[in-house]
Design a protein around this nucleic acid. Structure first.
Lengths: 189, 189
DNA sequence: GTGGCGAACTGTACGCCGTCCAGCTATATT
DNA sequence: AATATAGCTGGACGGCGTACAGTTCGCCAC
């Protein structure tokens, strides 16, 4: 509630602004700092004002999750299916690491938004190009998703205090690639 | 606060009883129903009484997490390393599915308790029997954990409403086995 | 213009949460 | 029997998500 605005006057918020404020809040204060009140304060608005733009906090978080996936590009249409998959999962992995606080939520509630569906379709398309279709493709899709998100979740944890996080992260990203290779080799049959 | 006990009188709680009550509460009311107040009520005690036995809620949850892993048995000492690994991970997977509400937490904060360490050591032992040691073993360990917990997390989600959960779960557990096979094949080199 | 309507916002409040503090008391120790 | 201590209590604090009712502004029909 900006003091220069008398009560009832509009702040002109939009759903996008609310989402952006939520993202900022998450970035600066972490997951536990992502509260309706914090987001509202960042927008100079009373907490309940958010409910004109978002049904509830769960919906807000869900939008946050799917939005993050928007940063993953579609694979090029002419790539070899296996390298295409490797690339797509690696990019997804990288995007997940960009917003560490969100990662546990993907596994807790899953992402069912448009971007999640787009990526799922992309994976299935690549698999089909490799001759993997039907239920087997569903299995492969699930294994890839699980591995990618699961790995990111593991990476994002605080972990026991030893070496500096830079080095640890570097070693891990190599591990991600190797395990992904195992999976892809298996999927090919 | 059992009315038959006048204030100051002891209920004779123990840390184990608090843990048990927390488990029951989790089972009946789900993760969001796991509150200090609910646990206390189940024990016939004021909420703050719990703090005589548990530092805070986070510690309680951590104990819950590690306790659940206690149900996973050690692999037999004479098993083939690959089938031993397959068995161990499958058992872990099954145990995870037994307390679905906990699964997301494993990825959110990880398990570092004695049982988690025991299982980790067991995996490393089996890997060593297969000639996989050093940093490569660490990578394999991580990949196996990630895959197992990640898969359970995925399975435990509500998912889009279609077929009955029994059938869905059956199909999934086959998928778990297959992906695990891919991983193990890759680890062997 | 002007009247009215609906959307955006406010203050306030409710019911929860985890947890701290100060007191009381039943038990264990000496 | 006197004392210390551990286990419990009532009460409260600050913070959370969010419902309710009211106020006020921007817009559109007339």
């Amino acid at each position: 509630m900006d003091p220069r605005r008398t009560p009832g006057q509009r702040a002109g918020l939009s759903r996008e602004q609310v989402l952006a404020a939520a993202r900022d809040s998450l970035l600066e204060r972490g997951l536990s700092g992502l509260t309706m009140r914090a987001v509202a304060q960042r927008l100079g608005v009373a907490p309940n004002a958010l409910y004109s733009h978002v049904p509830d906090k769960a919906a807000l978080v869900e939008d946050l999750l799917d939005d993050a996936l928007g940063a993953v590009p579609d694979p090029p249409a002419d790539a070899d299916w296996r390298t295409g998959l490797r690339d797509l999962m690696a990019r997804t992995h990288a995007v997940l690491l960009d917003s560490p606080d969100l990662v546990p939520l993907y596994l807790g509630r899953g992402a069912r938004g448009p971007n999640a569906r787009r990526l799922g379709a992309g994976v299935l398309d690549l698999l089909a190009r490799g001759g993997v279709t039907g239920p087997e493709a569903q299995e492969a899709l699930r294994a890839l998703i699980v591995y990618t998100i699961g790995f990111a979740a593991f990476e994002v944890q605080p972990g026991p205090e030893d070496a500096d996080p830079g080095e640890r992260s570097a070693g891990l990203s190599g591990t991600f690639d190797r395990g992904l290779g195992w999976l892809l080799a298996g999927i090919g049959g």
